[in-house]
């Protein structure tokens, strides 16, 4: 595919990527379909956890588990919405008619999902600290940011692939979470284990390096897999 597009003087990747990201931003700003729902969902879920666990403050394992499960489920909402506009309103067709390299769509969608997650976390992490976290947020923040970055990366690579896989099926809202959640269990496992000492009741502990390295490797492997197979989802 690249040989034909190259001869047609394919537009540079950066130009296409910028155009696609501008489109994503415009779509989201006009419709407000993903990010507000994700943020609101996360705050509501914290309230649910407060009542379901009957605790006013969490720390350690429990805090990290509640935070990551909430982020993961909120991310599901974003993953489900990620490709819907393209599938329903001809975005895929438009993109495939252009001479741009198909991988650019993957990059733009991954960056969009990453942006969704960052906005989500800007809302969800302070809300979590305010509503549920037993210890202070500030000392835990540097470590937490590292884990969040690596966890987001994992959610992004798997979410983009599964979002594209599920969007043109008849039951995409069901298939998306059903396929992505098992794939995300290792991300959740590593992220939750890495976060729990950071959110310890007696103050922030050191980051467990082993889990961060494992998480980074998992992100890397699935990043490569997504890169390798994504083009096959865009052939018609």
């Amino acid at each position: 595919m690249s040989s034909t597009t190259r001869t047609m003087a394919a537009p540079r990747t950066r130009v296409v990527l910028a155009a696609l990201l501008r489109k994503e931003l415009r779509v989201e700003l006009r419709s407000f379909e993903a990010v507000p729902a994700m943020s609101l969902f996360s705050v509501t879920t914290f309230v649910l956890f407060h009542f379901a666990l009957q605790r006013n403050a969490l720390s350690g394992d429990l805090a990290s588990g509640v935070l990551w499960v909430t982020l993961l489920f909120a991310a599901m909402l974003g993953i489900n919405r990620l490709f819907v506009a393209d599938a329903e309103q001809g975005g895929f067709d438009g993109f495939l008619l252009s001479p741009a390299d198909r991988s650019v769509l993957l990059y733009s969608k991954a960056l969009t999902l990453l942006a969704y997650l960052l906005v989500l976390e800007v809302v969800a992490v302070p809300a979590f600290a305010l509503l549920l976290l037993g210890s202070a947020l500030w000392p835990a923040l540097p470590g937490l940011l590292v884990v969040l970055a690596l966890g987001d990366l994992g959610i992004v690579v798997i979410g983009t692939l599964v979002g594209a896989l599920a969007v043109r099926t008849s039951v995409r809202d069901l298939l998306g979470p059903m396929i992505s959640l098992p794939l995300l269990v290792p991300v959740l496992l590593c992220a939750a284990r890495a976060t729990s000492p950071v959110l310890g009741a007696v103050g922030a502990g050191a980051l467990p390096l082993r889990w961060l390295v494992t998480l980074a490797l998992y992100d890397l492997v699935f990043g490569l897999i997504t890169f390798a197979v994504f083009d096959f989802l865009l052939e018609d």
Partner: peptide, 29 residues
Amino acid sequence: LLYATYQPLRFAIEDPERQARYASVFAIT
């Protein structure tokens, strides 16, 4: 749990060619 979604995924795609392609992407991942 992951592979339990293979058949639902196939069943949810009507076009046989796309079904085969998407199922292969799933099977590789």
